[in-house]
Design a protein around this nucleic acid. Structure first.
Lengths: 206, 206
DNA sequence: GTCTATACCCAGATAGAC
DNA sequence: GTCTATCTGGGTATAGAC
């Protein structure tokens, strides 16, 4: 690994622990094993390191979304199966340690970095919500759930629970074991999803 | 208002906007209209200003909790009424502009301030969850909800939705209009609560 | 209680030798 | 591409006059 790569990975580690402002160029250089002035041969300034990390994350996270016809098939195999398939795409990305670190970085920087905040809002919250609305509308059309339920409210009720678990993990319990968290996350969101589904499903359907 | 009070209120305003590290003593002094050295006649250092703010918040927020027998009565008057009563205590505190500001400060500082983090975890999350578990257990005993439901999962499914709305407001939409947020918050959590309740209530009961 | 002046530190960043 | 040396600016905090 060359020094540019080292700077990149060390920065992810330190930024995710202490936040962008909480880490100095000197600290990064020290961890890499070079002098701070050498950093500027690879990145023109500190902000550029952060931007590079964010771009990397976006590229990695652009999920090959599950095509709708596949979702439609999954739906017929029962809600639990359907839900599992929907989550796996997202969670498989988070399993990599470095992606977890950047995700924490995103969360803790979101309050004073416009770029980060917009990314979180659009890609991590709004896009999935819109996706779930489409899916719940399909379920409505198939008579799997009640025709009078508000699919936006349903999507939010469903999705925000997991979002809060993420917040709780990254802000309040960090750096608790990520593996254990992901395990708990799957279990808890599954219970939650089941509960939400029970309130709108049409009797007898699994 | 004397200068010590001015320092206090100006600090709340600035800290909530830019975070603790994002605000300098110079900036606070400038906003108050004195020189930075004068700050130290009132507070021994910057950290003490923050601690004073946190203590103030804790004192104000120590809610006179709704006594359980009152809750038991509310419960018999229907879930919506019951829920409303439970929320009002908390939200009435948040209606004051300054309490909203400190709440935002709590959220954004929680990742690198142990004191803040512990307060958030215990008082804002764990305590209410334990409270709701007691209440749902009471509802179970009264045969208002299904006897086989997991009241902890129920409490989390119920409560975390609102917590995420708070996160979303304070991190991602700040400084959106607080009044509008509180209004939306009431409406959305009410819908959500109704949905959760529907999934566990015993048929026919309102 | 507020001021001026200043000490001291650490941050980001640059110049130029090797 | 890395180093030493240095600049500049901002931060917290203190001393001492008024």
């Amino acid at each position: 690994m060359n020094n540019k790569e080292k700077i990149f990975h060390v920065s992810i580690d330190l930024f995710s622990k202490y936040g962008y402002d909480g880490v100095s160029i000197r600290q990064i250089a020290g961890e890499v094993g070079i002098k701070e002035s050498s950093i500027y041969n690879h990145y023109s300034n500190k902000q550029e390191i952060l931007t590079t990390i964010l771009n990397y994350y976006v590229e990695e996270m652009v999920s090959d979304e599950i095509p709708l016809d596949q979702a439609s098939l999954n739906m017929d195999r029962g809600f639990d199966f359907f839900y599992q398939a929907g989550c796996d795409a997202f969670l498989s990305k988070l399993e990599e340690e470095e992606m977890m670190k950047i995700t924490r970085l995103l969360f803790i920087e979101s309050y004073h970095n416009d770029e980060v905040r917009d990314f979180l809002k659009k890609s991590i919250i709004e896009a999935p919500i819109e996706g779930w609305i489409v899916l719940f509308d399909m379920m409505k059309a198939k008579n799997l759930i009640k025709s009078d339920c508000d699919t936006r409210q349903l999507s939010e009720s469903f999705f925000y629970y997991g979002m809060f678990l993420l917040y709780e993990h990254f802000f309040l319990n960090y750096p608790e074991d990520d593996g254990k968290f992901l395990e708990d996350f799957m279990r808890k969101t599954q219970s939650h999803a089941r509960m939400i589904f029970d309130s709108v499903k049409i009797g007898g359907i699994e």
